[in-house]
């Protein structure tokens, strides 16, 4: 019982630590690729401490409630994802619930930004939601392929099945889905070339434009957790999860660095270019995977 409670308390903190570490790593590696020295790895932590102590503006109650909802949603998703052998909420709904709880984060940001009444926020949210529609099409196809292939909606069972038959990404139909997931991962994380919704140079960082101080702190934490969630989901579904947290972390690290290389080297796409890309190659691959799996099943 104590161990279980400890899991509930510690796991989100570990996830947060990994997410923040990834944020720092992203800045450092991007800097090195761009021939710069880069900030110290703990720079995001320093920033977050400053955000905590800096004053901020509020545009009304929804401005705060939306963000709280968003952050809470992200933390709850973390509790549903197996991390190595740790999974506090495995028995309460599976992948479908994860899919729906994941909605809370963008919805919360959208609600909160909505009250900001700033033109940049409106444009940013509109872009964010359109982009989400763009990557949800291949993402849903990928998840459906996995669920149909293993005939379960529980992530734990997907991980267990891979323990016997090897990684999903190494088997043929799921290989296509895995590649498709990798192709949309930058869009899900809001990395270049898909950072249209928070583009600082075009729309003053979009939904974040009115956030300062603690609001920005929560948005940063939410982003850190988003990094953890999307990559952990990939590792669980396609790279066989892991027996212990260390292996799991190493797998996540490899995937993240892969995404970072794309992030550091590419310029930003326009929103309709992004949609066109997302609905072309990743969707085609994911669809092919789903068709093969469905035919193989029947």
């Amino acid at each position: 019982m104590v161990g279980r409670i400890l899991q509930f308390v510690l796991y989100p903190l570990v996830a947060l630590a990994i997410g923040v570490f990834f944020l720092g790593l992203a800045r450092k590696i991007t800097a090195r690729i761009q021939w710069r020295y880069g900030p110290p790895l703990v720079q995001p932590v320093i920033d977050m401490i400053r955000f905590f102590y800096q004053k901020s503006v509020s545009h009304g109650p929804v401005f705060a409630v939306g963000l709280i909802m968003s952050l809470a949603g992200s933390i709850v998703v973390v509790l549903f994802l197996p991390f190595g052998s740790i999974c506090p909420l495995s028995g309460s709904g599976g992948l479908l619930v994860v899919l729906y709880v994941m909605l809370l984060a963008p919805m919360g940001i959208a609600l909160s930004g909505g009250q900001g009444a700033n033109p940049n926020i409106s444009i940013g949210i509109s872009r964010k939601l359109i982009l989400a529609l763009g990557y949800e099409v291949p993402f849903l196809l990928v998840l459906l392929t996995v669920m149909t292939h293993y005939n379960t909606i529980s992530i734990v069972q997907v991980v267990e099945a891979q323990r016997d038959i090897g990684w999903s990404i190494a088997s043929l139909p799921l290989f296509l889905s895995g590649v498709s997931y990798l192709l949309i991962l930058p869009a899900m994380l809001g990395f270049r070339p898909f950072d249209v919704s928070t583009a600082p140079q075009e729309i003053s960082s979009g939904p974040l434009v009115e956030y300062g101080g603690k609001y920005l702190l929560m948005a940063t934490i939410e982003h850190a957790l988003l990094l953890f969630i999307d990559i952990a989901l990939f590792v669980n579904l396609f790279l066989g999860g892991a027996g212990n947290p260390i292996t799991f972390f190493v797998k996540m690290l490899i995937v993240f660095v892969l995404v970072l290389f794309i992030h550091a080297a590419f310029p930003r796409l326009r929103i309709e270019q992004a949609i066109r890309y997302l609905w072309k190659w990743p969707t085609a691959l994911a669809l092919a995977g789903l068709i093969i799996v469905t035919i193989g099943r029947s």
Binding site: K55, S56, V57, G60, A117, N120, S204, V209, K214
Partner: peptide, 19 residues
């Protein structure tokens, strides 16, 4: 956590950043 952080000031809706 939100409550422990520094206070925020409620501003009018037209007080927002437009360059």
């Amino acid at each position: 956590l939100f409550h422990r952080a520094a206070k925020s000031v409620v501003v009018a809706q037209d007080d927002n950043y437009a360059a």
